[in-house]
Amino acid sequence: MRRGLKISLVTVTGAALLLSASACGGKKADTGGGGDDGKKTLKIGLAFDIGGRGDQSFNDSAAAGLDRAKKDLSVQTEEISAKPDEPDADKESRLRLLANKGYNPVIGVGFAYTTSIIKVAKEFPKTKFLVVDADQCKVEGANVSGACFSEEQGSYLVGAAAALKSKSGTIGFIGGVNVPLIVKFYAGYQAGAKKAKPDIKVLPPKYLTQPPNFNGFKDTGLGNEAAKGQLDQKADVIYHAAGGAGIGVIKTVGAAGKWAIGVDSDQYNQPAVAGVKEQILTSMIKHVDLAVYEFVESVAKNTFQAGTKQYDLKNDGVGYSPSGGHVDDIRAKLDELKAGIVSGTIQVPTKA
């Protein structure tokens, strides 16, 4: 953690205080103060993934859950964003900073926090931790919870939508970084497309960067260039799972008059793509907001349980957006496929 980092602290009343976090160590702060109504105020520390609040995708979904907690519960929060290509030591320092200042619970947004949270949680046994997108859906520790998502199930449905809406017979996929998590998106997308239209051509997946370079979740220019490449291969529907870099995908695909499919949040309603919103066919919704809120609520109500929780089609943890009405004519088919997945008659792959 760099010394002198400026961090914004937001209270439930909406007042903003500017703090200077001058060190990552030090004496632990009290775990919570009293609110105006005499109730204990929960202090929530949240460490974002690359791109932070405002990425209009994955991080913003987490932020929405935090904002809901601020509205519904007696809480105050502190947020810190990650830096591209940072080492695990920086993530650990960020988590220790929040825990040392008395934030409890502490949330790490993104699978890259998994190892760091498991390590730091051992140092703060009284602090509850959540890792969103727990790597391989595994966590350790009596004070650690992991939120996992069946991205392949939601991707299966938007893959079916892509195939059914394609006029060229060719569709594409752009992933931010070539990691197992993003491969799940492609695996489900390809399977859903083939189920809906067996003769559909699904282009090989394009991953913007390879680990340890995670800039593929942020660089819109990379998304733009990748989209041009798939458009040149006659794809007329392109699905992205690239976080903030996906904004470049959507803009380029939309400007070409083809269909884009968003991810994580309902991207039809996001300002960054307002000019091409009518070219957003649908979005694969991943309710990170629900996972964050339910975790905070469990800590507030003393119902916290360690271990992982799966968010899937059965509990509406993933799904697709009907915004814009562009999939209205095929919703019956999509809902039929959803029912098959929920009942278990359709098994969705997690590897391509």
Rank of each mutant, 00 (worst) to 15 (best):
R2W: 04
G4D: 09
I7H: 03
I7V: 15
T11I: 00
G14N: 05
A16W: 06
L17R: 14
A23Q: 04
A23Y: 10
A29G: 12
A29Y: 00
T31W: 00
T31E: 11
T31D: 07
G32H: 06
D36E: 11
G38W: 09
G38S: 08
T41Q: 02
K43Q: 10
L46M: 13
A47S: 12
I50R: 01
G51R: 14
R53N: 08
G54V: 06
D55S: 07
S57N: 14
F58V: 02
F58W: 12
S61E: 06
A63C: 09
D67M: 06
D67F: 05
D67T: 06
K70Y: 01
D72Q: 15
T77D: 04
A82L: 11
D85P: 01
D85N: 14
E86M: 12
P87A: 01
D88K: 14
A89G: 05
D90V: 13
K91M: 08
K91C: 02
L95W: 03
L98Y: 04
K101P: 03
G102E: 06
Y103N: 10
N104K: 12
N104M: 10
A112M: 03
T114W: 02
T115D: 08
S116D: 04
F124I: 14
K126D: 15
K126S: 13
K126Y: 00
T127W: 02
K128C: 01
A134T: 06
D135N: 09
Q136D: 15
K138D: 11
E140H: 11
E140T: 11
G141T: 05
N143C: 12
S145M: 12
S145Q: 15
S145F: 07
C148W: 14
F149D: 05
E151I: 11
Y156G: 02
V158P: 05
G159S: 14
A163G: 15
A163R: 02
K167M: 11
S168V: 13
F173N: 12
G175T: 12
G176P: 01
N178K: 15
I182F: 09
I182H: 08
A187D: 03
G188H: 12
P198H: 09
L203E: 13
P205M: 12
P205C: 13
K206L: 12
Y207F: 15
P211D: 04
N213P: 03
N215W: 00
N215L: 03
D219V: 05
D219Q: 13
T220Q: 14
G221P: 07
G221Y: 08
G229P: 01
Q233L: 14
Y239P: 00
G246R: 08
G248V: 07
T252F: 04
G257D: 12
A260I: 04
S265I: 15
D266C: 09
N269E: 05
Q270E: 15
V273F: 14
E278S: 15
Q279S: 11
L281Q: 09
T282G: 00
H287A: 05
D289Y: 04
F295P: 01
F295R: 01
V299M: 04
V299K: 01
F304E: 10
F304A: 11
Q305Y: 02
A306W: 02
T308D: 06
Y311T: 00
Y311G: 00
L313K: 01
D316H: 14
D316F: 10
G317K: 10
G317P: 06
G317D: 08
G319N: 00
G319T: 00
S321I: 05
S321T: 05
S323D: 01
A332H: 07
A332D: 08
A332G: 04
L337A: 08
A339Q: 13
G340N: 03
I341P: 02
G344M: 07
